[in-house]
């Protein structure tokens, strides 16, 4: 049971930490709030990866790459994610090339690759989403 659950989910501490980064300092998160997000995000990974896998299958390729993930996001309607992730991939590849060039130049195997900057998509996506305001959801109290 424990092993199955561990394999099935992402670590709740990491999920919680990411949630906290977007919340005001005084906010708290209930245990069930963390668990719902944990389940939700696990499913999101499967959903996007499944779409990318179909594309690879049709093209007779075995390796899912970053472009496939971007394509899957766009295909599933996550256009704002696809755009931002596309920019991320571009910078990622630049950073990789710079690392290679730097290593060649100095022959130093200990150079650390600088991580690409965070996306800060939430702000952009929120603004776009709020422009065509979503219809009020049916909510039973």
């Amino acid at each position: 049971m424990d092993q199955d659950e561990q394999d099935r989910a992402l670590p709740i501490a990491n999920v919680s930490r990411i949630m906290k980064q977007i919340l005001p300092p005084s906010a708290k998160i209930s245990k069930e709030g963390k668990q719902v997000m944990q389940e939700c995000v696990t499913e999101f990974i499967s959903f996007v990866t499944g779409e990318a896998s179909d594309k690879c299958h049709k093209e007779n390729r075995k390796t899912v790459n970053g472009d496939d993930i971007c394509w899957a996001l766009s295909s599933l309607g996550f256009d704002n994610y696809a755009e931002a992730i596309g920019r991320y991939l571009h910078k990622y590849r630049q950073a990789e090339r710079e690392k290679i060039n730097h290593d060649k130049k100095y022959e130093n195997p200990h150079i650390n690759r600088a991580p690409p900057p965070p996306l800060l998509l939430s702000r952009v996506t929120r603004d776009k989403v709020e422009n065509p305001p979503p219809s009020p959801p049916n909510q039973s109290g």
């Binding site: 990411i18 995000v41 999101f44 994610y81 931002a84 996306l119 929120r126």
Partner: peptide, 9 residues
């Protein structure tokens, strides 16, 4: 990156 962004969103 994508999934962390989703959590934040």
């Amino acid at each position: 990156e994508c999934v962390s962004e989703f959590i934040s969103f």
